[in-house]
Design a protein around this nucleic acid. Structure first.
Lengths: 132, 132
DNA sequence: CTGTTACCTTACCTTAACGTTAATTGCTTT
DNA sequence: AAAGCAATTAACGTTAAGGTAAGGTAACAG
């Protein structure tokens, strides 16, 4: 019984559609060494690991990280965590990122509050207008 | 008793230092119509309103908004909310921004979780190394 | 065989958000 | 008066993240 590892694969077009980006972007991420899909002839074939990576890339982007930063994180994550030095470096970096995220959370909180106020004022004024 | 409204003012250098950006950036924001300080002769004089605006600009930037978007938000915020149409437009836009922020919150949550895992793994490995 | 579709590469173009440099101006401090 | 400092304008340079156009290949449909 040959145990075929039927791993799922994707074409570049499929990924582009799924994540609502252009193939150009995906190729660009590869050019920047954030992805490295297999090939069949010329064509790129993406597997599950690539799929996950792409998702992470986009998540990182939404949070305002540059592709270079995302690449760094990948490299850290992938690097065999063998030396204490490496591990400590990693801890430092995660702490930096954490600080960044905390700042963003704070910003979001303040903005949300302001949006609430604006919205309330709007609603009141709308109500006023209706009353006439 | 002449009630002097001693409003606080700032030079461009003071603002730059306070917010840890360059004067160039502040002038650029003005060029993009996000600020419009008074002048004494050639020199720019910023008041409290400008100070608040600058803070908002930077907050917006940290959240990934473009200067153009921030400008739009300012204009909406400033526009006299007189017509029902205007108010409804505003409500729509705030809802859009809200969705954006929610997405970011979700992203941050997932990233935080992943950072936690990575960190824990690192700490365990460090402990391992020490034990030898 | 022709056309369509999806993929490919190469190469140049674009936009946002400043950085950098240069040349100038007006204090104020020595 | 000279020097130093903070401000000014103008203009060109830079970087990131793709967009876009041109030309080419492979598979398949009619």
């Amino acid at each position: 019984m040959t145990h075929q590892q039927e791993e799922q694969t994707y074409t570049i077009g499929e990924l582009a559609r799924e994540f609502d980006i252009t193939p150009r972007s995906i190729r660009f991420y590869e050019e920047q060494l954030l992805l490295s899909p297999r090939r069949t002839g010329q064509n790129r074939i993406y597997n599950n690991k690539d799929h996950v990576r792409l998702k992470l890339i986009l998540r990182g982007k939404r949070l305002g990280f540059s592709l270079a930063e995302i690449k760094n994180l990948f490299e850290l994550y992938d690097s065999n965590p063998d030396s204490a030095v490496q591990l400590k470096t990693m801890l430092n970096l995660t702490e930096q990122k954490r600080a960044h995220l905390r700042q963003q959370l704070e910003d979001i909180q303040m903005l949300m509050n302001e949006l609430d106020e604006v919205e309330n004022r709007c609603r009141e004024e709308l109500a006023q207008l209706k009353r006439d």
